[in-house]
């Protein structure tokens, strides 16, 4: 099997070198790899048994099927894009809040100055005018310095612009809308997790209980059970149906779900 694999590698390498005549080379390579898959499947049982016997076995990279490799890299890509989307969302919210609070204060000052019946005089008037001017200058600088674009415009267009960038690779980044019961579960998990953290803090820092105390271990187990959902819960990468068959797209979904299920189990286990 190993010999066959190395031979295949050699042929693939040769084909890589003479890749210019693309169509013929590619079709022959496809045939070669197709035969490799069938032969791999034939000797599957033999290899898997040897692996289980030796535990951690060093597997050469040629053992990894191209689909698994691609899916694994897609997972990494998707996860990083998810983090980016999350970051951009937070950035947008922070600065929307900041600008709207500025606008609120400015509106109040404006109203106080020009729309109230009793005339405002003296120091009070000066303060309000100063406030108005200060906010106007801040907003102007915010816009001129490009901060408005960085914090509001680009995050708002994150999905559109990312999809323009990754379109040539036949993938698409989409938002996943969770149902109301998922949202409720998320909320309950969030609350119980934070309550547990506060309790652990109180018990260990204020009351100085040990880590192995029954109450502390109980709250620790609560934090483990109320971890946030992981995987494609808010953002996911989908393959373009024009370029990929239904089987491949389905395979990718299954691969992702299975990976995150395992990852969740691993996290629960390691935090115990």
């Amino acid at each position: 099997m190993e010999n066959l694999q190395s031979k295949l590698d050699e042929t693939e390498a040769n084909l890589e070198v003479s890749k210019k005549s693309t169509s013929t080379a590619r079709s022959s390579r496809l045939n070669v790899s197709g035969s490799s898959i069938s032969s791999q499947a034939g000797s599957e049982r033999k290899r898997s048994s040897s692996r289980t016997s030796s535990g951690k076995n060093v597997k050469s990279s040629s053992d990894i099927t191209s689909a698994s490799k691609i899916f694994r890299n897609l997972l990494i890509l998707e996860d990083d894009l998810r983090h980016q989307a999350h970051r951009q969302k937070i950035l947008k919210w922070e600065f929307t809040l900041f600008l709207s609070s500025l606008a609120g204060v400015a509106g109040f000052a404006f109203y106080e100055l020009y729309f109230t019946h009793d005339a405002i005089t003296g120091f009070h008037r000066f303060i309000l005018q100063f406030l108005l001017l200060f906010i106007a200058i801040t907003v102007a600088l915010f816009h001129l310095g490009g901060e408005y674009k960085r914090t509001i415009v680009i995050p708002r267009r994150f999905f559109t612009s990312t999809n323009k960038g990754v379109r040539q690779f036949n993938v698409k980044l989409v938002k996943v809308h969770s149902t109301w019961n998922e949202q409720f579960t998320d909320y309950v998990r969030f609350v119980s997790r934070n309550v547990a953290f506060i309790n652990i803090y109180m018990l260990t820092k204020t009351l100085r209980l040990s880590e192995s105390n029954a109450l502390v271990t109980f709250w620790r187990s609560v934090t483990i059970r109320s971890q946030p959902r992981i995987g494609a819960v808010d953002v996911k990468l989908v393959l373009n149906p024009r370029a990929f068959s239904a089987e491949v797209r389905e395979g990718w979904e299954i691969y992702r779900d299975e990976f995150w299920a395992r990852e969740g189990a691993r996290r629960r286990k390691t935090r115990l």
């Binding site: 590619r26 496809l30 790899s33 197709g34 898959i37 099927t65 191209s66 689909a67 490799k69 691609i70 694994r72 890299n73 897609l74 990494i76 890509l77 990083d80 040539q168 690779f169 036949n170 993938v171 373009n240 024009r242 370029a243 990929f244 068959s245 491949v248």
Partner: peptide
């Protein structure tokens, strides 16, 4: 930045051929 092999992502421009 974090992918193990950039070719497996950038090769997807060929569609299903990338899967071998």
């Amino acid at each position: 930045r974090y992918v193990t092999d950039v070719r497996s992502i950038l090769g997807l421009k060929n569609g299903e051929k990338a899967l071998g």
